[in-house]
Design a protein around this nucleic acid. Structure first.
Length: 203
DNA sequence: CTCTCGATGTTCT
DNA sequence: GAACATCGAGAGG
């Protein structure tokens, strides 16, 4: 098991989102995702991400062109992209890359740290099953499309903090999950990142 | 433990 | 009308 310890330090968010999408997906591992809702603070360390990069990536929503839904991905980096899947689950992404270049990082799992009881009031499951999936973490943190296109730099409602640095030896990579209808090159691309040995990663 | 299957409604063709 | 970056229940080993 790999439990990540608590560590506080400021987060240089503007410089952070100026990096390439794959770098951001990698560097988000170990960062603390913080949610403030109803005057309560919830948080967890990011342990799993996926990169979706541009119109050439057939797994990326924006590969089918600019639509009302994908518009956010064509905007500036550092905003959220929240959408509904299968009519019942929300997915949280962070927009990356330059304006007009549609890309984002999907947050797939966090290790819950603060407000675990409040997360369990939204999602009655044990610690390990609270946020080990993209739909699960949105449910646990009370994230829906009302938080779409939200700027992380504000430090309100949803933001990032430096958490626990993850060394290269602790990073695992592999193909992305659930993109079966994408082109073979995109199905095979190792654009999923997770913390090796973490029990909080999706199954 | 593994595998299969269906829920459910938004988005886009 | 089809597809969908998921999840959990239920059956079987």
């Amino acid at each position: 098991m790999n439990d990540l310890s608590v560590h506080h330090s400021p987060f240089p968010i503007h410089n952070f989102f100026a990096q390439p999408t794959l770098t951001i997906a990698r560097e988000l591992l170990g960062c603390r995702l913080v949610r403030e809702i109803d005057g309560q603070r919830l948080s967890g360390l990011i342990v799993e991400t996926e990169a979706y990069i541009g119109q050439e990536d057939t797994a990326c929503h924006a590969s089918k062109g600019r639509t009302p839904r994908t518009e956010v991905m064509f905007g500036p980096a550092g905003q959220t992209y929240v959408y509904v899947i299968y009519g019942r689950y929300y997915m949280l992404n962070f927009v990356t890359e330059a304006v007009e270049f549609p890309a984002a990082v999907l947050i797939r799992a966090i290790e819950p740290q603060k407000g675990i009881e409040l997360m369990q009031s939204r999602r009655p499951q044990n610690h390990y099953n609270l946020a080990n999936g993209p739909g699960k973490l949105c449910q646990a943190l009370g994230i829906d499309t009302g938080l779409n296109n939200w700027p992380l730099a504000l430090g309100q409602k949803l933001w990032l903090e430096a958490g626990h640095p993850i060394t290269a030896a602790e990073v695992a990579t592999g193909p992305r999950i659930g993109i079966t209808s994408a082109a073979p090159k995109d199905v095979a691309a190792p654009w999923r990142f997770w913390v090796k040995g973490s029990r909080f990663v999706s199954n």
